[in-house]
Design a protein around this nucleic acid. Structure first.
Lengths: 260, 260
DNA sequence: CGTTGGCTTGACGAGCTTCAACTACCGTGG
DNA sequence: CCACGGTAGTTGAAGCTCGTCAAGCCAACG
């Protein structure tokens, strides 16, 4: 399937989909905090009005790439010589099992680097999949290393990013090893809520929530069936409501109590 | 309880304990690959004969520390301004839950840095506990950063270490989220076997295996009771034998098949 | 209009936990 | 010297959490 087919699909979607909570302003925030910008590799998008349309125009040119929802950005075998950053949309990074199972180890939001570890050696066996339509940007390792030679202080910034990734991975292990299904799902939602709030992508109680139940299951080490049941219990008890790929957090403190 | 009491206990242990598989040669190998040595912070111990006794003599002086089995090296609250390296012995790094449960996220062997992430900001909520008697060495952040200023090429080495830690954490998440108890335990053993082989600490089919079942449980997200049953099944089926804190790997390829 | 993917629900069973009792092994102190 | 207490490991029975299987619904899509 060619590039044009993907684009056609994207166009159709954006024509009929309800307006997303996340807009130009939110993506500006993402750009402002993006590692790529600190590296002066990416100029970001300061023009508030035109942010979305400029992204649109740039996608498919230069180092920008646009990819449709549900498609994979990086394949496990591929060993790339580039580091990629999410400009807009949601993606997930997962490790696959021979039997068909997989564990999602990170949920990537605008401004995130797919992994800072790629700068040294691409992590083996990961595949990255777009949850929504995604615009991302790739930078060649060589370019990044050149910048680092001139500005060694930025190395510290990369180290911080990697340390955070490690911390998140350990936190995930704690969840998977020691917490119940309810706690895991509650924590997933609360963590996403906090990150989206940082990005200014929460409006009142509502936030985008494009994850399929299959993806929630893969992220929490559960089955889609069980995720459905837990999610139902949480909505029946009035903690949250999910509709139209968006989530209303009705009782944050209650949910926090469940998350323990 | 004072330092002297700990030392007394250590002396008693080493007087009566059967000779460990790991000896002076093994620890030389650990030193040779240690990050601290590449940084020229630690000279290592080249004198093959005297390695163990020199470590013994140095412990408690300079930046060397000796700690008895089962005691904790770093507390979760403590925010240290140093990075620590394991010189000899086994340790585990764990995250604790309010309810008393904990998840071991890393098993540390000689030559390992407790975490490369400590160089940027100490990871929160971890506690590090000695499995066996441990000798470790601490370096002040300031000293490390000074070395880095002079030799920026070493930064790459740190990045690699951190990326490896991240990879291991993701692998752990995959295990905890998607594999059975048998697979987890088999993989734990095989991973340790491979690491010890790298350190030249495997003699024939035997290797040191000082982990308590409680610690195996904490590392695999299981209960000690279930670990006991799985271990029993594995020994009954002739895959391995555990006695005297050492493990004989009788059927590595069989175990690998279980590990999938 | 049939197909497909996502979600839902119920019945059933496997895998692991919990609880409890018992053994063995130390090191300690009477 | 033996009695004692704490830690580690073992075993069996019962129960809960979550997975598996199966059926059905709905919306989107070709």
């Amino acid at each position: 399937m060619g590039q044009s087919a993907i684009f056609a699909k994207v166009e159709a979607r954006s024509a009929f989909a309800p307006p997303s909570v996340s807009g130009a302003i939110a993506e500006r925030r993402a750009c402002a905090n993006c590692l790529a910008r600190e590296f002066s590799l990416c100029s970001g998008f300061d023009d508030r009005q035109k942010h979305a349309s400029r992204l649109e125009a740039l996608s498919g040119r230069d180092s920008f790439h646009r990819i449709a929802a549900r498609r994979t950005i990086t394949h496990p075998r591929e060993n790339s010589d580039a580091v990629a950053f999410i400009c807009s949309g949601w993606a997930v990074s997962a490790m696959a099992l021979a039997g068909g199972g997989r564990q999602i180890t990170a949920i990537l939001l605008p401004g995130d680097v797919i992994s800072a570890a790629d700068l040294v050696a691409p992590l083996r066996g990961r595949s990255v999949e777009a949850v929504t339509d995604v615009v991302y940007r790739k930078f060649k390792l060589g370019d990044l290393r050149t910048v680092l030679r001139d500005r060694p202080d930025l190395m510290f910034r990369i180290l911080t990013a990697l340390a955070r990734e490690r911390d998140a991975a350990d936190q995930l292990a704690l969840d998977l090893g020691r917490r119940t299904s309810e706690q895991r799902i509650a924590r997933l939602i609360l963590a996403l809520h906090a990150r989206l709030a940082d990005l200014d992508m929460v409006r009142g109680v509502r936030m985008d929530f494009p994850l399929r139940q299959r993806q929630i299951a893969d992220a929490t080490g559960l089955t889609p069936v069980h995720v459905c049941k837990v999610l139902r219990a949480l909505t029946d008890d009035g903690y949250l409501r999910i509709e139209d790929r968006s989530l209303a957090l009705l009782d944050p403190s209650g949910l926090q109590q469940i998350a323990a």
